[in-house]
Design a protein around this nucleic acid. Structure first.
Lengths: 128, 128
DNA sequence: GTTGTATATATAGATATGCTAATGTTTGCA
DNA sequence: TGCAAACATTAGCATATCTATATATACAAC
């Protein structure tokens, strides 16, 4: 297989793993600290089975690593930079899928919570 | 909808659009120059219909813009940085989905053709 | 208008994915 | 040993996606 096709296919697989809201939320929540499945379930407000299934997908692609501690299983990001890289993707979100105003404010909010890793000037103003 | 869910859902949509090898290849090919559908068809070695359908997906999410010129329709990246950002994703590819050696060399090859982050001298050859 | 080229869309069958509910497995503790 | 808590996995159904085929549209030349 030509190398372009090889890399494209692997990237496509990666993107496929990331193409689910819950999996993205899990990754962002794991950015700060390792969390147990039950904690994720409470944070996300979905069933433990759903959490487990999405974690299995992330696990099968080695994006997260499991660590058992007693009855709990904690998960952590194998490469924490992944969360930062994902957040940079907001710059490419199509502007009309949601109400623009709501989306923009949501992005601002999320950046303060999940962090804004985009290398940006401190307080430098640019022309309107 | 809570803002975290809003942004996660929008990011998931973006990743979903990118979760196809052909769509990734199209984006990377468009990084250098705008291309017509027929040219993409030749480069990718698939039917014009397949190219058109994948372009329609990219178009519907405003990742590419169409520009008609006579009989031809040229496409270009709305945000060329998208191609760079995508390539950064190779750092998170799971290491065992393909033969590791082959994948690593393929990544190296692809970086010289599609470029990594640093701007690079122009290349003319388009070998497999 | 007619023809030919370039591109877009529509449709259908096969495959994949996500959710719920149910069942398994591992651990801690009495 | 037996039971409950914390997770994982499976099965079944609904929905979404891909690929290929067929049809439709837009434009240029005549």
């Amino acid at each position: 297989m030509p190398y372009r096709a090889v890399v494209s296919a692997e990237l496509a697989k990666l993107f496929n793993v990331l193409s689910h809201p819950v999996r993205i939320r899990i990754i962002e929540e794991l950015k700060k600290e390792d969390l147990a499945v039950g904690t994720l379930k409470d944070i996300l407000g979905i069933t433990h089975s759903a959490v487990s299934q999405q974690l299995a997908v992330l696990r099968s692609h080695h994006l997260v690593v499991e660590m058992r501690q007693g009855r709990n299983v904690f998960y952590h990001l194998r490469k924490p930079e992944l969360a930062q890289w994902i957040m940079q993707g907001v710059g490419f979100i199509s502007p009309d899928t949601t109400e623009v105003e709501d989306l923009m404010s949501a992005i601002q909010n999320v950046k303060t919570v999940w962090g804004d890793e985009t290398p940006q000037p401190k307080r430098k103003k640019r022309g309107a």
